[in-house]
Amino acid sequence: MGVEVTGRRYGGRSGEERSAERRAALLDAAFRLVAADDWHALRIEAICREAGLSKRYFYESFGDLEELSAALIGRLADELVAVTLAGAREARTPDRFVRAALEPFVAHLAEDPRRARVLFGAVPGDGAAARHRDEVLHRLIRTAVGLGLEVHGVPGGPVIDRGASFLVGGTSQLVLDWLGAEEPSPREDVVEQLAGLWQAVVDATFGPRGG
């Protein structure tokens, strides 16, 4: 019988594991829907239909649509920050830092352009998705600032914060435009162009006048 008993396993998986799988399936379904039709198309009924699950399982995982939106954007941001940090930490010197961070950032988004569309594409201006997206951008900014300060060995300051904000916002839009182009230029060219822009801003913000 298809009954789960707390503390027991069903079909080789515990109730917690099956619940986690359903939650992941709902997030995957929401990701596909937003990538295809933007955030305006996101509805609980549509998500459940896409995931092949009932509303009961939606509310098992999320209190409402806003909670799911936060979880989806958070998951995408976690993945992007993780690959960027992993790349940047391979280069612990200022001369290699910029390219080491940018290459995995661009590669991760290019691997599945839907990631960039969902994270950085247009969202309703006063909705939950917009708020969560802003939080992600600020989180990426804090990550960029933290890495830069660590690598360059300098204290923080408002100039550095503004420089990081400029870089993160500009890079996100540039990558989004690049992935949406009819004939995108080679990925290596995009990284090269971004590296030049980043290096100019990094030199200005982390140099003698930065902070």
Results as ranks from 00 to 15, higher is better:
Val3Ile: 12
Val5Leu: 10
Gly7Asn: 13
Arg8Trp: 06
Arg8Tyr: 04
Tyr10Phe: 12
Arg13Pro: 00
Ser19Leu: 03
Ala20Cys: 02
Ala24Ile: 03
Ala25Leu: 13
Asp28Cys: 05
Ala29Asp: 08
Phe31Gln: 13
Ala41Asn: 05
Leu42Gln: 03
Glu45Cys: 10
Cys48Ala: 07
Tyr57Cys: 05
Tyr59Asn: 06
Phe62Cys: 06
Gly63Pro: 00
Asp64Pro: 00
Leu68Tyr: 03
Ala71Phe: 02
Leu72Thr: 02
Gly74Glu: 04
Asp78Gly: 07
Glu79Cys: 00
Glu79Lys: 02
Val81Lys: 06
Val81Trp: 00
Ala82Phe: 10
Ala82Met: 08
Val83Lys: 04
Val83Thr: 07
Leu85Ser: 08
Ala86His: 09
Glu90Trp: 00
Arg92Leu: 06
Pro94Cys: 12
Ala100Gly: 04
Pro104Ile: 07
Phe105Cys: 06
Phe105Glu: 01
Val106Trp: 02
Ala110Gly: 01
Asp112Gln: 12
Arg114Tyr: 01
Arg114Met: 07
Arg115Cys: 05
Gly121Glu: 07
Ala122Leu: 13
Gly125Asn: 04
Ala128Ile: 10
Ala130Thr: 07
Arg131Ala: 14
Arg131Lys: 13
Arg131His: 10
His132Met: 14
His132Thr: 13
Val136Arg: 03
Leu137Cys: 00
Arg139Leu: 12
Thr143Pro: 00
Ala144Asn: 11
Ala144Trp: 09
Gly146Met: 13
Val151Gly: 03
Val159His: 11
Ala164Trp: 08
Ser165Trp: 10
Gly170Tyr: 14
Thr171Trp: 07
Ser172Phe: 14
Ser172Tyr: 13
Glu182Ile: 01
Glu182Asn: 04
Glu183Pro: 00
Glu183Tyr: 04
Pro186Gln: 14
Arg187Asp: 00
Glu188Val: 02
Glu188Leu: 01
Asp189Cys: 09
Val190Cys: 07
Val190Ser: 03
Glu192Gln: 14
Leu194Asp: 05
Gly196Tyr: 13
Leu197Gln: 15
Val201Ile: 14
Ala204Tyr: 11
Gly211Ser: 15
